[in-house]
Design a protein around this nucleic acid. Structure first.
Lengths: 211, 211
DNA sequence: GTCTATAGGTTGATAGAC
DNA sequence: GTCTATCAACCTATAGAC
């Protein structure tokens, strides 16, 4: 007694999100979505015109609040945030989202550069990338720009993999890993990534003094 | 004066690998593949029966040599390998493969658990997972089993993201990151992941003595 | 806003000649 | 082994009644 009360447009968004996450964007047909949402096929085109703009709408609905929360956490961390605070501000708003189907969908989106770069990054992630890029530069000024960029990619990759595999990691590890406690997952991710960021850049070299 | 000399079956495998990497498994039709390979459509079904078993063949062709090399590097690292040696033995055979189209395809495969777990992990990765799992346990015995598993996932995720984004990271970062020097990418990945593995498990706790 | 009906194209797979 | 021709199923998108 819940899904029947929300309007058609939202039902489509929720069904699409769930199926995009579990089957992928290309493998999910509009008919799959309308069947899951118990809605007429033509309603999709009425509300969203095309499948591509439905994909955009499904993603935008989630990523905008996430990015607002990221920037809020970044601001709350003050003038000189630690690397742990920066990683957590970036990761927690995604990993701790209380919408499991959304996690798998975001994982798929991040693994698809041809979708992600033009349709998500350029329109929804510019400000977050700039602000966090600058913050990481202040927090780890001893790193070269290239190394810092690569480490941001590694961070994004660790997070994306958790999103893609979260729903299945429990079964795969016979229960050793449990992704349902999302605060716990965030804490593990933050520990790992922050330590990676603190690694000296050159194998033999000694780290330069930090400010 | 190369592709025309190899046989039809190999031409199909190479075209499929390239397109699976650039467009994804679902978005690539058999007709896309036969056009790229300059081969007749019916040849695909003659040599591979179905699209699904073509996918399996494309993946198996690459992953088996990779896994042999992983196990060889693991053996070459001796009785007490460092964490750096373990990470490199796992990562280098993939990242340093001299077959760019294969990298993007593997990145996509790793981001698709429903394809990867039953059709790749269970049939091609069991031995590698067991051997590396045991080696990491000996190299980082102070970690709980759960934390060690999570960190292996983070490692896999960092690597997968490099595979998916490698072909585009140069353009995205205005040339700051260059994925074409694959030894360099491996070195950065090893530094980052090994440092993450060495992080103490509990934020406040002191690390226990290592053997 | 929601429906039926359907257009117009693409898909994976096969049958059968050569 | 390779080809042409074709099938049945599926797809996205739209037109038009209600």
């Amino acid at each position: 007694m819940n899904a029947v009360l929300v309007d058609t447009k939202t039902r489509i968004l929720e069904a699409a999100e769930k199926l995009f996450g579990s089957k992928g964007f290309d493998a999910t047909s509009l008919r799959d979505i309308t069947a899951e949402a118990e809605v007429n096929l033509a309603a999709v085109n009425y509300h969203f015109q095309t499948k591509d703009s439905l994909i955009d709408a499904v993603i935008a609905r989630r990523i905008d609040p996430i990015n607002r929360r990221r920037l809020a956490l970044l601001a709350a961390a003050g003038e000189k945030p630690t690397i742990e605070q920066l990683v957590e501000a970036f990761v927690a708003p995604v990993v701790e989202q209380d919408a499991p189907p959304m996690l798998a969908m975001m994982g798929r989106a991040m693994a698809n550069p041809d979708l992600f770069l033009p349709r998500i990054f350029k329109s929804h992630l510019r400000e977050v990338a700039d602000r966090f890029g600058a913050a990481f530069e202040r927090a780890a000024p001893e790193l070269s720009a290239a190394e810092r960029m690569w480490r941001l990619m590694f961070m994004a990759g660790s997070m994306a993999h958790v999103l893609s595999w979260g729903h299945i990691v429990g079964a795969m590890t016979d229960g050793v890993c449990d992704a349902s406690d999302r605060k716990d997952v965030t804490a593990r991710l933050v520990r790992f990534v922050a330590a990676g960021f603190r690694a000296p850049e050159s194998d033999g070299a000694v780290m330069r003094a930090k400010s």
